[in-house]
Design a protein around this nucleic acid. Structure first.
Lengths: 309, 309
DNA sequence: GTGAAGCGCTGCGTTTTTTGCATCACGTGA
DNA sequence: TCACGTGATGCAAAAAACGCAGCGCTTCAC
């Protein structure tokens, strides 16, 4: 897109905070890039960047302008997607930001299913906890977000939600595995792996733990689901997860690969809400909109009772 | 704005429906313009125009793309306005579409008041009846609209309204001038000048006339307020107007330049609503937003009881 | 205190892109 | 049928963008 070059360049310089560094990334010389920036500043009528000894930084005008550029790029992507769609090509690119919960089973399944029909569509999946995901939506770095508790910004538009209980995961040989439902007092003196504090699961757990004044024997804190799952096989500790992050069988109470999951009583730890949504007021590219539809369908199949649209 | 040139060119061709005509307006040769169009179509990956023997016409993809271009231009204007605003220059351009009612006194007064503070702000005032004004908002050809009855499109966002009774205007020597309030039956066999059918005033009048089955002796139909006002001095006929289209004194019942205005009883002709608003979801340029604020303030001063925000 | 390194900026010759002229092929309407 | 107006194209000139070398400046390490 030739008519976007200058704007892309400004965006790149804003990101790199340096003309020379941005020039390198863009595969041109710093002098050419410098002159493009100067020219645009001239056309705007005032500087967009502050010049520091260490590089450049956006000033207020620049912030406004770069925001415009990003919005423009996002809208162009939408238009291209729509144009491709009406010629039947079904090309496109979808960017999703999500917490770790959905990355293991849900998103891979849904994307595979989507690409089975539209294999010219490509994806960016960025793992980000709720607050960062919302910021990524706002700066148009992503199209869709899946956020498990809580929603902080009013410019997040929820399209569908599903309620999720918090589950304990453990080896099937663990002493708690024989229980159908876990109460928090069962966890007294039990070794546990906790998600990090940004995680929605952790925040729900905190609600219960604070209320009942229970201290877990937290042996480890991690934001890695893979680590947790694998570690549970090695030691008699419990981890925490929500159903969407578990294989269907495991969520149904059956053991999978030596692990089992048991729900925590909702009197102790409240259910949380998984939100699927996008930036309020944004018109999504066709591919992203259709992918969101499919996600909601898949959620409805998996959690028929708990889906709200 | 060099980086907008190609897009402006596409927009121009779309408007002119001819490359050669557009080239003339843009003061370049048709061959240069033609090649820019071809290049953009190449970058998009498919044609935006149908080639006819008589010129070109947007195809579906082109419609989408031109819509994007216009949105982009409008957003750029907004950003420029904001940037100018934060440097204290207060430059800007405001485009208003309005029915004829406000063009005589209200808009001139408000604009004069606005430019007293921000004399670097320029204006485009286009006189358009409601439906056309709403279309102009939607195609981003205008920023603000003042519409007197009715609002047809859901993408019109009303910011403030004021209720307006319909008044009869006439020479102070007219037989009806001695009445304080006009009833429709007074108008039987009275010679009248009516606004055209697109006008909100006309539509309100029709409601009353239909209900009471009264036929006016319509001597003339016009969309020109100036004509009506001037003609009333020459012959014993009545015209119709709403208070915002009258000088304050006249709306208060006092004669001005030999003319008087008398309200029609609201039992006969319902009050109408004057809407001030913009396209839903649009972020207005600073200048336009501030001008709208001032319009609403002015409305509040003039009609303190009837303003809704 | 001093020198090296990194930054944005600028003069100048070169390369790339854009433009304008002349012209073609094609459809339309008198 | 033929003149007219349309968009497209080959080619040379004009214009814009680019890369190189180097300037002035600040920062940071020694």
């Amino acid at each position: 897109m030739r008519f976007m070059t200058s704007l892309r360049f400004v965006d790149a310089v804003a990101r790199e905070k340096s003309i020379r560094k941005a020039a390198e990334k863009l595969a041109i010389t710093s002098t050419a890039l410098n002159r493009r920036i100067l020219q645009i500043e001239d056309e705007i009528g005032q500087p967009l960047f502050e010049r520091l000894a260490s590089g450049v930084r956006l000033n207020t005008a620049g912030e406004l302008f770069v925001q415009h550029i990003r919005a423009q790029q996002a809208d162009l992507a939408r238009v291209q997607s729509q144009i491709a769609d009406l010629s039947g090509i079904r090309r496109g690119h979808v960017r999703v930001a999500s917490g770790a919960e959905t990355l293991r089973h849900f998103l891979p399944d849904v994307i595979a299913r989507y690409r089975a029909e539209h294999n010219a569509v490509t994806f960016d999946i960025s793992r980000q906890h709720g607050e960062a995901a919302e910021a990524a939506l706002a700066s148009l770095e992503t199209d869709l977000a899946l956020i498990f508790e809580p929603i902080r910004r009013s410019d997040f538009q929820t399209i569908a939600t599903t309620r999720q209980a918090v589950y304990c995961c453990m080896a099937e040989t663990h002493e708690l595995a024989r229980l159908e439902t876990i109460r928090l007092h069962h966890l007294l003196d039990i070794q546990a792996i906790l998600p990090t504090t940004q995680s929605g699961i952790r925040q729900l757990l905190n609600v219960g733990l604070m209320r009942r004044n229970i201290n877990l024997a937290t042996m480890l804190e991690t934001d890695s689901q893979e680590f947790t799952q694998n570690y549970l096989l090695n030691e008699q500790v419990v981890g925490f997860q929500i159903p969407i992050g578990l294989p269907q069988d495991m969520a149904d109470g059956r053991p999978v690969n030596g692990l089992v999951a048991r729900p925590i009583d909702s009197q102790d730890v409240p259910h949380g809400t998984l939100h699927i949504g996008h930036l309020r007021g944004r018109v999504l590219p066709v591919a992203a909109a259709k992918f969101m539809d499919l996600m909601i369908t898949a959620l409805g199949e998996r959690f028929p009772k708990d889906l709200d649209q």
